[in-house]
Design a protein around this nucleic acid. Structure first.
Lengths: 189, 189
DNA sequence: TCCATGTGGCTAATGTAGTTAGCCAATGGG
DNA sequence: CCCATTGGCTAACTACATTAGCCACATGGA
């Protein structure tokens, strides 16, 4: 039996690919094993079963989305930064329709990697809002508003929740504009 | 063997209860059968397996949420109506943390009941926005904005995505206020 | 060069969940 | 009262995750 050259990275990345292809429900050890040309039990030499596979994919989702956002924010501030990260957020989600939902799962208590990845993600959004001069509870409220708008839109869009035949791009740009207007006058509301 | 007096309604309602108790992952035929004091295969006399069970719960979610919203909108218009349905939306979702996610699933092509339930839900939101004098594409964009904000907020809240120890009630009221402000000046944006 | 060792594949077996077939008792309309 | 329908059941099969334990491959030191 020649070696297949698997590593934990290869296995988890294949799992992520399958999730994006067939959705989170479509992930199974059989599917991963078949894709990698290997028998199911062999996977256990690299990952600790199904839960670990899901956790790995979830971490890929959080770090991948966070990287896309911070990349988009480079060299911009206020409305420019907000527009850039919003568009990057939606773009990443559309490119990773299966992985995306994992990126919003609450960090698991005690899982340091998960907590770190989740923090990085929220911090990126939080920092952009710092440019609006928001502090303390105002900043928290605003971050929640922005995250809600972005997550709600892409969650509905990727799950097929927007049925009307009206341009999805345009609706999203108007959403961004509305959020920006709200943030510009945030402390007054 | 005495009869247990099951009907499709009893079975589906039990499934919905389990989903709210243990989450969508916690739903199994075994769990439903045990709760109802019956063996697993007996359920097949009333429901066509697991997919039908999920579908039934999904329909309960869509109709239940829609009923809560239209009830809240009675006798109100514009900002009053919007505040009322927003609060009712969040309230229903918090009371049904397991069922709620099913309410945003895209209607299945060809499933008339599903399409009807989904339409009713969106229509309720859409009608409130009619009070703002929005028509055509403007109304679609605005509906998407409102649905995104509401869904995003409660999805993040119910999944534990808001970690900061800041009042969740207040953040939501500010979100509503921001959405209202945006809708008041929608056609200008 | 060779073999000692650890590692990465494998088969076999077990447990759980969904599903189907087919049996038999309870129910209710003539 | 009888019998057809219905709603429960057991048994058996599938698919999947998991564990135990085997053996070949690859590598590094003698």
């Amino acid at each position: 039996m020649p070696r297949a050259g698997l590593t934990i990275d290869v296995v988890v990345r294949e799992a992520a690919r399958i999730i994006d292809d067939r959705g989170a429900e479509g992930l199974s050890l059989s599917a991963v094993a078949e894709s990698l040309g290997v028998r199911v039990p062999s996977l256990y030499k690299h990952v600790d079963g199904m839960p670990a596979l899901r956790r790995g994919a979830m971490l890929l989702a959080k770090t991948g989305l966070a990287a896309a956002l911070s990349d988009a924010a480079i060299g911009r501030s206020r409305d420019q930064a907000l527009t850039a990260i919003s568009i990057a957020y939606r773009k990443w989600a559309l490119e990773h329709p299966g992985l995306y939902p994992l990126s919003v799962s609450a960090p698991v208590n005690g899982d340091e990697d998960d907590i770190a990845a989740s923090s990085t993600l929220v911090e990126t959004v939080f920092r952009v809002l710092a440019g609006y001069g928001l502090e303390g509870d105002d900043a928290v409220d605003a971050t929640r508003f922005l995250r809600a708008a972005l997550h709600g839109y892409v969650a509905l869009e990727t799950s097929g929740g927007f049925a009307m035949p009206v341009d999805l791009e345009r609706s999203f740009l108007r959403l961004i504009a509305s959020v920006e207007a709200a943030l510009d006058s945030w402390t007054k509301s």
